[in-house]
Design a protein around this nucleic acid. Structure first.
Lengths: 195, 195
DNA sequence: CGGTCTCTTGACGGAGTTCAAAGCTAGTGG
DNA sequence: CCACTAGCTTTGAACTCCGTCAAGAGACCG
């Protein structure tokens, strides 16, 4: 069974969903490492579901530095949701961090699908509930927690990310410079060998 | 017509919703300024819809300082959504910043209502979509933007807040100390009188 | 009024940035 | 399969934003 259908069944606790009708709204696409899926200031036409691989969403800040706001591993959704719904220009760029397979859906199809299948409406309500809660938690982590503690926390909570993601990108996600991340890592290694 | 019903109609673009059935799931409560609606580490049993007034959601950080993560004005929903759904202890405190009237709903009633009225499922999906996008934007604002610029931006985007909210709380939302906020305000006044 | 809370001011220190330059890796083409 | 290069990562030094502390001035409420 397709990973998306599995995910819908799991999230909504509803077994036996007939997947073919739902999958017919989507198209499969494959991207190479570093490919751009959505570009800042271009119209946002697609919503992505990660089947295999890893994406990141970032923007370019006031002095030209890329700031990563989100990652999407398997079974995550990603787009600039505001721009997607309004069919407007994206405020973010989405890039593949690895070779990545996604399902894509257009805004009209997204609306159609939601209107036609109550279970999908339910599914997305739950997906957003979680995403929202996760985003709040993110703000909580960032806000005034010493950065080295934040790094520790992130490391212990998402060890998979540390391995899959370049330091530079990780630093921009955690909210500091690559140089400082490097310094932190050195400190941590020292501590470990001491204890 | 009740503000909640108006809001549902507006968000879902569906006029003529019969409100009484929906409102029967809720209870109205009134709070005074500084009253606590939900307390950190107590079970989170209610979801709040602000009819009139203003709430804030905060937690107490690792050295005992209150960090504000969200405000809720008229027509906003607020609770610790994770704790609410799981019926567990809240990670946040919710407090009234003004005399505030809210609608409250329990978790069982929330589930019932969603299951019974597809339009409500649709409504909450849209509400979370927005809340999620707003939360992302928040992270975007915080991340490595110089704090004085962040203050400017917030001021120009939400002037109503600046007036309704105590400085101390505003500082904790913006991610810096009351002392530094005070310093910023002084600078701004100077600039204005110069120009 | 008095007492408690909030806001302001200023001095000081340190966490984290910036800049520059030197290793390192991984991807590319021959 | 190796050599070369562009981009990552590390290091170190200088600097600065912003937090901490302490103390005074206002504001609000009973």
């Amino acid at each position: 069974m397709h990973p998306l259908i599995q995910h819908i069944q799991k999230v909504t606790s509803t077994p036996g969903i007939e997947g073919d009708m739902i999958l017919s709204f989507f198209e499969t696409k494959v991207f190479k490492k570093k490919d751009i899926l959505l570009e800042e200031n271009k119209r946002c036409l697609l919503y992505f579901f990660v089947v295999k691989g890893c994406l990141r969403l970032y923007f370019t800040d006031y002095n030209g530095v890329e700031q990563t706001l989100q990652f999407a591993l398997e079974n995550w959704w990603m787009t600039d949701i505001n721009a997607f719904r309004a069919g407007q220009k994206s405020g973010y760029t989405i890039q593949a961090l690895e070779a990545t397979e996604v399902l894509t859906i257009t805004a009209p199809n997204y609306e159609l699908m939601l209107a036609k299948f109550p279970i999908i409406e339910n599914y997305f309500r739950l997906v957003y509930e979680r995403a929202y809660a996760a985003s709040l938690l993110r703000v909580r982590m960032i806000s005034r927690m010493p950065k080295d503690e934040f790094y520790d926390l992130f490391q212990s909570k998402y060890p998979e990310f540390i391995q899959r993601i370049p330091q530079k990108v990780l630093a921009s996600f955690l909210g500091f410079t690559p140089e400082y991340l490097s310094e932190l890592r050195k400190k941590k290694v020292k501590k470990k060998t001491n204890s």
